[in-house]
Write a protein that binds this DNA or RNA. Structure first.
Lengths: 253, 253
DNA sequence: CTCCTTTTCAAATGATTATTTGAATTGTAT
DNA sequence: ATACAATTCAAATAATCATTTGAAAAGGAG
């Protein structure tokens, strides 16, 4: 078999190294501590969090998950029916762990100033990206869901994320003032959420583009920046809204 | 077999519908027009762009790709050696198509004002997200790469993206002024790139969260917003830099 | 203890799919 | 036209995995 025409100039020399092999170090999070005394079902869920986060749905094998959970290979099908349902339950499980630790509202009442609520929300969205424990799994799983358009995502959005989005938009509307339009809210929301859920915050991307394991101070620094950057953007949008209103109130005369 | 304990409350009623089945409509881009006269290798690359974009690496089968390319199933292995190398060449191919159509520098010379260069860069980064033709494949493939930490990504970053990032940081440094630090540049760069590469701009996410097929006016609206929002963020950062300098110049006295 | 249900287990099944093979076909240079 | 290399093709191979099976073990109620 000829090798020349394959244009393998991007393969490492030797050309037999598999790109997807572990030789190209992945920035894996540490394996979770799984209590061997806990029920098989729970062990499977925690192991599944880890494996699905690491590999996504299709690269994860039931074999790997049950091995990590120290359960038999048939245990997944017994407890969850099939792999798909395990995946579904895993996402819910992970999401609960994350929101239990990082409250999207940061314990603030609905009546707190919008600015404070926005600060709390941004913080709660960014922190899990730097959490190496189980609270960090949601971010990874969500990133996979962004990649893999499954019906599951639609459903999860409607059930769980939609209410959170509505709260978020309410904050923005309050900050942008009474003359803001739906578009104003959507656009500012887009800019802020994009920063909080940025792929650049994912561990294996950080490894290349940012500091791999930022200190607590670094993380706070990033959060403060996103808040400041976003508030500045909102202020700018407010000026646009004001100018628009002025133009509309005094039409061509 | 018992079904109760599976906690299938999130499965559609009937419970036999497969979540990953096409029944949950994916927001697929239209199939590319593949010239049947063009060489098999090119037909395969274009077909691979489409299939890999749609399904990611592991969900894509050589069978599906060769069928779309109207080539024999053995053609991939003949022309590219194996699936991995096909994937590699596909990413390069897609990236070239995209940058040929959307020049990262928008034809501007290095000497153009930083503000204009930034505007051009943001535009070139966002537009492909709304391109349903071949120039849109890069965005999808990159999104997959964000999900799958392969060595390929490291390599592609170094070879191709690093130089572009350096140009980008130079613009920011120019805009932030002489007193800005590396951190200032990194943080602003992070905020801007996160918006331009936002998962929220991906077609199947847009389908849920934004307008599915925005008009040209909508796209321009979004681009203008990101530019404005980002410039406001940069201005804010400049004020922080100025304040920091002031504090440093007149230490506790 | 006995009966019954729930859970675990090792091995088998069945489906999918990347890759190989060797023959057939096409294209090209002499 | 002939020889030779490049390309295409259908069928076979081999590996991987999700899922099933049926027996064994554990647990609980009477």
């Amino acid at each position: 078999m000829q090798l020349d025409p394959y244009n393998t100039d991007s393969l490492k020399e030797g050309s037999s190294i598999k790109i997807f092999s572990p030789e190209f170090a992945k920035a894996n999070r540490p394996e979770p501590e799984i209590d061997p005394e806990s029920p098989t079902r729970d062990r499977l869920l925690l192991a599944a969090c880890h494996v699905f986060s690491k590999n996504g749905y299709h690269d994860s094998t039931i074999s790997e998950i049950s091995k990590l959970a120290k359960a038999n290979i048939a245990a997944v099908n017994y407890h969850f029916g099939d792999k798909q349902n395990l995946y579904l339950q895993t996402i819910k499980y992970a999401f609960k762990i994350t929101t239990d630790k990082y409250d999207p509202n940061g314990n603030l009442p609905e009546t707190a100033p919008a600015r404070d609520r926005l600060t709390a929300r941004i913080t709660a969205l960014i922190r899990p990206s730097f959490d190496l424990g189980p609270a960090g799994y949601t971010k990874e799983l969500f990133a996979w869901e962004m990649g893999v358009p499954t019906g599951l995502f639609d459903q999860f959005v409607k059930e769980v994320l939609e209410p959170l989005k509505n709260q978020f938009h309410a904050m923005l509307r309050e900050l942008l003032g009474p003359d803001c339009t739906q578009d104003d809210v959507h656009l500012c929301g887009f800019s802020i959420i994009s920063q909080c859920h940025s792929p650049l915050l994912r561990m294996h991307v950080r490894k290349i583009l940012l500091k791999y394991r930022p200190s607590v101070a670094d993380v706070n620094f990033i959060i403060e920046h996103v808040i400041d950057f976003s508030l500045a953007g909102i202020e700018s949008r407010k000026r646009i809204i004001a100018k628009r209103k002025q133009t509309n109130d005094s039409p061509d005369s």
